[in-house]
Nucleic acid binder design. Structure first.
Lengths: 158, 158
DNA sequence: TGAAATAATTTGTAGCACAAATTATTGAGA
DNA sequence: TCTCAATAATTTGTGCTACAAATTATTTCA
């Protein structure tokens, strides 16, 4: 019942739900765009982190990005398999492995950034340039003072 | 090595990553808070939708909330098992089942809303009241004109 | 009347988080 | 110096969710 076109894609009320919707929109499109260069959003995110923190050890990458160590192993495995990054021994701590981006990885991540920017442009098309700046500012501000993450769960919805 | 406090929890650059971080912060805390009343974020979200659209059929709920039909079945199953909602036959379409919230469900969702508001308060603690209004306005604006969702994937990270 | 579309459902697959255990190594204290 | 707790990477197993595909019942439309 009901005109049926009314309940479709309702704007959520809670901020958490809005974050989720926008993340999902962005994530879906990013995944589709990155597929053309053989990257997933997660692999791209790690590469992009390495772009600025080349030689970080796995634990640092995971801590900074909120990725579980056991998940990191698989991600770095894949980056190595694709020739986009390499593990190398840490100079002083033999437990740790530094992860360095390869030239090929650097080229990939640059193309990925272009694609990610295009997606972001698309997702935020309802906002003009000043509004986008304002939104990013508010998001960063909220995040920087948000309570520490105990390292979450999965689920969906809220 | 390295001061180690520098790479920890870096503020992402892309909007999609910011959405993800904030969603995750919100989701984790919401899940923890709702656990006290026996709800998950997903169950709460469905109940909250029913609060305003009681008697909607499963397909409508799923379409409005972006939840896969097969996932909806499981969610409604659980709401029924917990006595928070019930399926009933659609008056004219025997394929469809209307979902109605029970009095118990209504009480649960009210408590859930209180908890969700507290979490939201916590997550957005870095913003004052005017900034929060502005943020929500921008989020809604972005979402309402965001490109249509082809119904996403899973993954992580973007 | 018959074929395509639709609503709910079931089943199977895949991705990611998480917990727990393992191995190698480090660091700090007795 | 020796010992023990902590740490980095890793493996394995579990659980949750999305998604695809197939099924059944029913509706809609040509």
């Amino acid at each position: 019942m009901a005109p049926s076109s009314e309940a479709d894609t309702e704007i959520p009320e809670f901020a958490g739900q809005l974050f989720f919707r926008l993340w999902r929109a962005s994530h879906t499109q990013t995944a589709a765009a990155l597929e053309s260069i053989g990257l997933t959003p997660a692999l791209f995110a790690v590469l992009d982190f390495l772009r600025a923190h080349d030689g970080a050890i796995q634990q640092e990458i995971g801590a900074a990005m909120g990725i579980d160590p056991s998940t990191m192993v698989a991600l770095i495995d894949e980056l190595e398999r694709a020739g986009l990054a390499k593990r190398r021994p840490h100079p002083t701590d033999r437990r740790a492995r530094e992860v360095v981006i390869t030239p090929k990885g650097r080229r990939s991540v640059e193309r990925g950034r272009t694609l990610a920017c295009e997606v972001e442009d698309d997702v935020l098309q309802g906002l003009d340039s000043a509004e986008r700046r304002q939104l990013l500012k508010l998001l960063r501000q909220a995040l920087s003072s948000a309570p520490p993450q105990p390292l979450w769960s999965s689920d969906e919805g809220d």
